[in-house]
Each structure stands twice: as structure tokens, then as C-alpha cells.
């Protein structure tokens, strides 16, 4: 694979952050309606990072926490990447309550729950970003990264072909509940220049 030098300027980073802000708001509104709750919105964190620094990008979740997570690939107009949704295990009970799942949570029910929330949040976020950048993303099948594991285990099971990634981290919390989940959108290294061009167009006067 040809290596291209990629970087993002401060203006571009700000623009990605604002695009993510709008998209996560749309996703949160959908989740709020579905669960009848108020979603607390953070300021999204945008960084161009080395893939091996990925764990550090997950600032919303402690490394010592037990977590469960799914990932889902996406692609559209030469822009590919992967979305990761990671739940603090402590959240699962409250989420199942909100989604009105049966009382007993076994591994397979939890899995279903993870997939449900992942589909909603990842789909809505990608649509939100896509509509601003004029890209239509298709999503692959969600894949389980791990259940009840430490964060490092969850991340290390994943192998990327890229050395750098444009990472957008959104930490969702739900008011009045012990729910903490991290949505991480990772754009492939070779997608960054395509994205930068699109963002430059928005930044023009």
C-alpha cells in the first residue's frame, strides 16, 4: 500500500468536531426518543492518532473497567473506516431495563442488546456525518469484539491495516442512569485526504 503523508490542520480538526457534534446530536435524539431518556452530550474529541495509541483515545472509559464492545465497518465514496461502540459493563443492567429486556441478562441477550444500541447509534452518526459531507455510507455487519473483558484486550483483538487513523470519540451518558458508552469512529488512513478535501470545501468562504 502506498504511504501518503496525512495530517490535519487546526481548522480542519475544528470542522470535524463540529460535524461530529451535529451528527452525535441527531443520534442522541433518536436514542432519547427510543428509550424515553435524556442523553447527556459531550464535546466530541477529534484526533489524528497512531493506531497503536488507540487505547489512549478512549478517554471516556477507564483501562481497568470491564467492557463489552462491537465494531462495524463502513464505506462510502472512497471513505472507509470502522465504528467501535464500547460499553462499560456496569451500564448493561440499566440499558436492558430501558430497552425492557427480560430480567436475567445472559451473554446472548447482552449481545443482542449491544447490537441493537450499536445499530442505532452508529447508523445515525454515520448518516449525520454523511449528510454534511455529501457521502452515503454503507455499513457492514456488526462484529463482537469481546464481552466482559478489559479494555486493552478488547482493542488488541482488532487489527488494522492502517498505521494512522482519524479518530472521533463521542462519550454518551444518560441522565439518571449509570450508562456510559464510548462511540469511536475510526477513519482509514487512506480516507483522511479525501475527507480533508471535503472539509476544505466547507471551510472555504
Amino acid at each position: 500500500m502506498n504511504k501518503v503523508n496525512v495530517s490535519i490542520s487546526e481548522d480542519q480538526r475544528d470542522c470535524y468536531q463540529e460535524i461530529a457534534n451535529i451528527a452525535m446530536g441527531q443520534a442522541a435524539a433518536l436514542l432519547a426518543k427510543l428509550l424515553d431518556v435524556k442523553v447527556i452530550l459531550p464535546i466530541p474529541v477529534v484526533n489524528l492518532i497512531e493506531v497503536n495509541e488507540l487505547r489512549m483515545a478512549l478517554s471516556g472509559i477507564e483501562a481497568s473497567d470491564k467492557v463489552s464492545g462491537v465494531c462495524q465497518g463502513f464505506i462510502g465514496n472512497r471513505i472507509s473506516g470502522e465504528a467501535l461502540l464500547i460499553f462499560n459493563d456496569a451500564s448493561l443492567g440499566d440499558i436492558s431495563q430501558l430497552l425492557k429486556y427480560p430480567d436475567e441478562l445472559d451473554t446472548s441477550v447482552e449481545l443482542e442488546l449491544l447490537m441493537d444500541v450499536a445499530n442505532i447509534l452508529i447508523g445515525a452518526c454515520l448518516r449525520g456525518i454523511g449528510s454534511q459531507l455529501d457521502v452515503t455510507f454503507s455499513q457492514g455487519h456488526p462484529v463482537v469484539l469481546g464481552q466482559h473483558v478489559n479494555l486493552p484486550e478488547l482493542i488488541s483483538t482488532n487489527h488494522y491495516r492502517w498505521s494512522k487513523t482519524l479518530a472521533i470519540e463521542i462519550n454518551y451518558k444518560i441522565e439518571g442512569y449509570n450508562i456510559n458508552c464510548d462511540l469511536l469512529l475510526l477513519f482509514a488512513e487512506d480516507a483522511i485526504n479525501v475527507l480533508n478535501n471535503k472539509v476544505n470545501y466547507l471551510l472555504e468562504d
Binding site: N21, I22, A23, M24, G25, Q26, A28, A29, A32, K38, V39, L41
Partner: peptide, 8 residues
Amino acid sequence: VSGDIQPE
């Protein structure tokens, strides 16, 4: 003017 479009 906001991205937070929750009715609340």
C-alpha cells in the same frame, strides 16, 4: 442554535 435536538 444547537446540535442537541432532544425535545427536552
